[in-house]
Simulated assay, not measured.
Amino acid sequence: MISISCQYNRRFDLDPQHTALIVIDMQRDFLAPEGASGVSGFDLSPLRAIIPRMQNLLSAAREHGVSVFHTREGHRTDLADLPETKQQRSLQAGAQIGAPGPLGRFLVRGEFGHDFIDELQPIPGEPIIDKPGYGAFYATDLEHMLRRKGITHVLLTGVTTQCCVNSTLREAVDRGFFCLTLADCCASFEPALHDATLQIIASEAHLFGWIANGENVICALEKHTFDERNRAIEQTA
């Protein structure tokens, strides 16, 4: 069991074999200037700032036995799974879902913009969850896949904090998973919304779980592996 130091003097205990890192929507449509968010005029710099930290966290998770799941928000090529309300919102934002853009049709599965950024591509064997909504459990097999692997604890990262990350967090909490949101590995276009979401997570005696930084997780995983190796050496000495 690993104990991670969290904000507000709390600790999050996990077993790597029963823990999943969920990397939420690190797609070109949200992080590339030619993608849907860039074309809509959003400031991408807060989102892109977390990429190096997420690369480090992803490497540590892979090295130390934490399962990794990647999610992508997007819709069928015929847009049959796109609600009218969401379509209208995307039109008002300036990049209508399904319309042609520099990286292909905005937020349509199979298009270049829908795929992950180069820096955070999945490796073979890591599940990809294609979701039509903001939460990763809605209209997907994510819960079934987590249960089948024996996952009880989830680490949440990605974009944006107040939308898809928080929606997924709330769905996970309702399903009984122990949830740790990694504050420095999530981001919003507006930092104030990021900060407000973290305050909501911690409200009412931590209604939506724990909050920590990715570096805390990396350090805890590395220490655990180091201690395990030392114990193994001592037992064989």
Rank of each mutant, 00 (worst) to 15 (best):
Met1Val: 11
Ser5Phe: 08
Ser5Trp: 09
Cys6Asn: 05
Cys6Arg: 09
Gln7Tyr: 15
Asn9Glu: 14
Asn9Ser: 15
Arg10Trp: 00
Arg10Gly: 14
Phe12Cys: 10
Leu21Pro: 06
Ile22Asp: 10
Ile24Gly: 07
Ile24Leu: 15
Asp25Asn: 10
Met26Lys: 05
Gln27Tyr: 04
Arg28His: 12
Asp29His: 04
Phe30Thr: 03
Leu31His: 03
Pro33Leu: 10
Glu34Pro: 01
Glu34Ile: 01
Ser37Arg: 06
Gly38Ser: 04
Val39Ser: 01
Gly41Val: 04
Phe42Met: 09
Asp43Phe: 02
Leu44Lys: 04
Pro46Lys: 00
Ile50Phe: 00
Ile51Ser: 00
Gln55Leu: 02
Asn56His: 09
Leu57Asn: 00
Leu58Thr: 00
Glu63His: 10
His70Val: 04
His70Asn: 08
Arg72Gln: 12
His75Ile: 05
His75Glu: 00
Arg76Asp: 11
Leu79Ile: 06
Thr85Pro: 02
Lys86Thr: 11
Lys86Met: 12
Lys86Arg: 13
Gln87Gly: 09
Gln88Asn: 11
Ala93His: 09
Gly94His: 06
Pro100Ser: 01
Pro102Ser: 08
Pro102Leu: 13
Leu103Trp: 07
Gly104Met: 06
Arg105Phe: 04
Arg105Asp: 08
Phe106Asp: 06
Leu107Phe: 15
Leu107Tyr: 13
Arg109Pro: 00
Gly110Asn: 13
Gly110Val: 11
Glu119Tyr: 06
Ile123Gln: 14
Gly125Tyr: 05
Pro127Met: 09
Pro127Arg: 07
Ile128Glu: 11
Lys131Thr: 13
Gly133Pro: 03
Gly133Ala: 15
Gly133Asn: 14
Gly135Gln: 02
Gly135Val: 01
Ala136Pro: 05
Phe137Asp: 07
Ala139Pro: 07
Thr140Phe: 09
Leu142Ile: 05
Leu142His: 08
Glu143Arg: 13
His144Leu: 14
Leu146Gly: 03
Arg147Ala: 14
Arg148His: 15
Ile151Gly: 02
His153Val: 04
Thr157Asn: 05
Val159Ser: 02
Thr160Asp: 03
Val165Leu: 05
Val165Phe: 00
Asn166Pro: 02
Asn166Ser: 10
Arg170Val: 08
Glu171His: 13
Val173Asn: 03
Asp174Phe: 05
Gly176Ser: 06
Phe178Trp: 14
Thr181Glu: 08
Thr181Val: 15
Thr181Asn: 15
Asp184Trp: 02
Cys186Pro: 04
Ala196His: 12
Ala196Ile: 03
Ala196Leu: 09
Leu198His: 12
Ile200Trp: 11
Ile201Ala: 07
Ser203Gln: 11
Glu204Gly: 07
Ala205Asn: 15
His206Lys: 10
Leu207Tyr: 12
Phe208Glu: 00
Gly209Leu: 07
Ile211Trp: 01
Gly214Cys: 04
Glu215Tyr: 08
Glu215Thr: 09
Cys219Trp: 09
Ala220Phe: 11
Glu222Ala: 13
Phe226Val: 08
Glu228Cys: 11
Glu228Asn: 14
Arg229Val: 08
Asn230Thr: 13
Ala232Leu: 13
Glu234Val: 08
Glu234Gln: 13
Gln235Cys: 09
